[in-house]
Amino acid sequence: MNISVIKYILLFILLILLQEFVFDNIQVGTLLTPYVYILFILILPFSYAPSVVVILSFLLGLSVDFFTTDILGLHAFACTVIGYFRGFVFKALKPKDDTEQKIATTTIYTMGWRPFLLYVTILVLMHHSCLFILETFKLYNPLYLLIHILLNSLVSITFIILIELAFFRNPRSQS
């Protein structure tokens, strides 16, 4: 088996455990919780077929549902959506000179700051919109919902960037 596959399986399990036992207990303000586990979907290599990414996203969401919510399918839905649209967002943002598909995974170092921030922001907003709209299905308070989505996205993006900075090394500085 490929070493990178094992690495991603371990990351999958690690992120679910972190989400369940660490990040779900962090509460910024009153209702804001960082959803950091979607980092897995963001950094999956682009050599994987889109259908594989969609299936993996669904499984990731389902596992998080299983551990943290009473409603199965909530995170699964949101994850499937970003798993599918990930490729399109990336295609729109990737640098023009990347004709030979040099970018294997999306990190700050391979993509550069601006495109990476945009990439994360768009996908996190997409994920959180799905999540909160589905969760508050019966509560009709659109303005509050919008503020909730925006603020929570800000918290999640901050945590995702911090994790990227802490754990992903710059390949150029290594050599």
């Binding site: 259908s51 969609v54 669904f58 599918y84």
Partner: peptide, 22 residues
Amino acid sequence: YHTLLLFLLLLGLSIVLMVRTT
């Protein structure tokens, strides 16, 4: 269109799960 079909299938599945668990 297998990716799109798979995507729609999984979305449908999550909706079914959500309705059933609620």
